[in-house]
Design a protein around this nucleic acid. Sequence first.
DNA 1: GTCTATAAAAGGATAGAC
DNA 2: GTCTATCCTTTTATAGAC
Lengths: 210, 210
Amino acid sequence: MNRRGTYAKGAAKREEILVVALEVVAKRGCRKATLSEIAERVGLTQPGLTHHFSSREELFQEVLRARDTRDHAEYNPPNRGFDGFLAVMRHNMEVPGLVQLYAEFAAEASIPDHPAHDFFVERYAWVRGVIAAAIGRSQEQGEMGLDLDVAEAADLIVVAADGLQVQWLHDPTTDMLGRLSRMWALLRRSSWSVGDAGPGDEPAGTGLIP
Amino acid sequence: MNRRGTYAKGAAKREEILVVALEVVAKRGCRKATLSEIAERVGLTQPGLTHHFSSREELFQEVLRARDTRDHAEYNPPNRGFDGFLAVMRHNMEVPGLVQLYAEFAAEASIPDHPAHDFFVERYAWVRGVIAAAIGRSQEQGEMGLDLDVAEAADLIVVAADGLQVQWLHDPTTDMLGRLSRMWALLRRSSWSVGDAGPGDEPAGTGLIP
DNA sequence: GTCTATAAAAGGATAGAC
DNA sequence: GTCTATCCTTTTATAGAC
């Protein structure tokens, strides 16, 4: 531990930057949050900040990564299942800045050559996996039918959660937890087989498959 | 029609700008799309463009408004119900630029004092209403139970659609239509009463309501 | 309705000192 | 690890001519 003043200090500053970056995003929005303002708020110049995070995109990506790491450790101990996911969403309602950053940056990064594109693709896969595991656990306990298409069900939970967060940002009275619980309940009660109305199928008469 | 050269020309240029703005957004993303590039592509200078749309936010908002107007006329003639909604989503898959703009700009506008904030709040209410009407129609036809909470069900469809679009931007193999059809099927098969597991309720043991 | 010109600001990147 | 200094680029906004 003789690295005090170098490594330790650097790591602490990094943490501080991540926190302050979030505050600036919460106030200005992801688009209008600038490196200079963040730097100033942590008592650095803009080039000083760049030493820690070499670009705006890297910084925001790391803010979100740190969030995931902490949230997962805090709310998703092994096998907590859907309750853990709900707990994360409940926590999200106390940190609108994070939700705002997530929604805006994820959308911005949807363009294929965005620096954070791969981060989000991997993150989505990870989240779907977490939810799929929760569904699997629910199946083991007999709460959900074994004929449920787990991947599809997990997808629906994840996209509903994402969509809900944007709605909630626009209207904070949105009942995210209630809506997600309902979504979960729908899946719990349903029972379907692949040949029934599987992925890609459509209601008859839609005309989507000419 | 003696206004050729003034009103007519202005309106035509406006339309052209809306189209080109979309192309630039599709290429660069909403954040990186600039008034100057759009102006150049329509053969105007940036101040020339500003004459038609006084800000970036107004321009993007009008692109989305024009889209809604056209889509609604094209795919949602009275009482087409859920099929009409699916048709809009199918059409969206042919215009990723629009989906990209919608996702990114909606997230950006989630901050309360954003110029387009109200536009999105009103738009969400409108879309929810459209879906709620489709559900109501489905109930009349006996396809959906009368005990369905229409507002809640409509919400779930809308947020799932929004979330799906972002997922699809990141991974174009995402089966948006299949997922939405499944969502609809879940609601069709379900049957719930308000006291059963109504909005705001949670699974037992979640601890979300201390 | 569109231009030129210019403002006025700000964004992010980089080289080199300490 | 942080600063100063500087650079280049870009962005939006505005005033006034045609």
